[in-house]
Design a protein around this nucleic acid. Structure first.
Lengths: 229, 229
DNA sequence: AACGAATTGTGAGAGTTTGTAACAGGGCCT
DNA sequence: AGGCCCTGTTACAAACTCTCACAATTCGTT
């Protein structure tokens, strides 16, 4: 979902990626696909909730996270339009899902999906490939978060967002989330994220625009160099 | 695979977990399952290799990792006996797989597996669930690595190994890997790993035995507290 | 247009980790 | 036995991030 390696850059799951981004991968056999709108910070589901549905993000960004005992929040993934959340869970959710900005999701009955998949190999394969995407995203993020310095992490994060945005974005990345969300994703504090963005700006690698909600990548090769990937 | 949340602790994939640990989950339809022995530091495959096979670990520990531009190594997962590696890859591998100690793997033809899965829903579902396990492991590790302090990370790592070992282990954890492997998994240096183990020993939470290759957990609740999960 | 709340940005000191270096221990070879 | 290599441990200075504090900006509401 964070998709540092998506269709363009990774040999994983190319065919399915296109299919799912098209938006009609899983749901054409499932009737009860209702829509749900969420405001920023509203939850799709929480840790411990019974897992009744699978969701496809239609609009916005959904943060998948886990709360630690001391109250800190560890974001594990951002789900963007076209991504599915809630796959691969059996009983109850062990992660929470929360909108970082105004968002929209489509809901599918999990039990209906599963019973269909038991006899439908192509659907089961789609589930497989969808989870493979998530796995690639999680491992990519693992590489990013394992980086030592704050600059490396932030640079890798911006690059990942840029790659996901595709070629049409022309280096303009909309963050669509707070500094705290970025910090909890990268394992940094909001102050460090803020300072690091300032440092990247001073290095003339990026421009921060629109009150910090949009980042323009001025020097992508340099950024990739800083990201060390 | 690191399996901080495995059958005991997570609602994910319980049924399959048992199935796959039994060892005969995917291969009973695949003839050409040859064995391969590896010495410590030998590779199963490397980044850029064509993906021809899927492997099941029979013995030992296989580290899945990615090499960064500056030569650092980021371990993304450890695969233990019963785990599959190489699933979910389409073209060429984007990660390397290397034995951390003397190991044994069984090789399955990837193309044979895939063509079978196209018409066999139950096999496709098994693939799905197997990758779900990996996803849970990756996300668990993400929580661990996102932790700030070295103690938290090492404590969580030891706990994960302990849970994987099962109840029979009686708090004795065999590391079966170098300090450098642990460091590259947790995003620390070998010195910090060593220092942290010493600190845990001084706190009387663990004992380090057999020349540092085995760790005995003296106070699991305390360790869980330190791990913050 | 103005106000208040929330978010973001910046600074200084404290704390932790890293990097460098030296040393100890075990295994293997001659 | 002795020497060599690899791994692991420990010490100390340097670098980095975190914490805490407060200023600046943005956004929504009045």
């Amino acid at each position: 979902m964070l998709a540092i390696n998506t269709s363009e850059t990774s040999p994983y799951m190319q065919s399915f990626r296109q299919e799912s981004r098209g938006g009609r991968a899983l749901d054409d056999r499932l009737q009860q696909a209702s829509e749900r709108r969420l405001e920023a910070k509203e939850h799709v589901f929480c840790e411990g909730d019974q897992r009744t549905h699978v969701y496809r993000v239609e609009d916005g960004v959904i943060a998948i996270y886990k709360t630690l005992f001391d109250g800190r929040r560890r974001i594990i993934d951002f789900a963007y339009p076209g991504d599915y959340i809630g796959l691969g869970v059996l009983g109850e959710h062990i992660m929470s899902a929360q909108a970082t900005c105004a968002s929209k999701v489509r809901c599918f009955s999990a039990s209906a999906l599963e019973s269909l998949a038991e006899t439908d190999a192509s659907l089961a394969l789609k589930l497989y490939k969808s989870v493979c995407q998530d796995l690639v995203a999680a491992r990519s993020l693992l590489v990013t978060v394992g980086q030592r310095s704050a600059i490396e992490r932030v640079a890798a994060f911006l690059l990942a967002l840029h790659r996901r945005g595709g070629e049409g974005s022309k280096g303009v990345v909309k963050l669509a989330m707070r500094r705290s969300d970025i910090a909890d994703l990268l394992g940094l504090t909001i102050e460090t994220v803020s300072r690091t963005l300032t440092k990247l700006r001073e290095m003339q690698v990026i421009d921060v625009e629109q009150g910090g909600t949009t980042v323009k990548l001025r020097d992508v090769p340099r950024l990739a160099d800083l990201a060390n990937e």
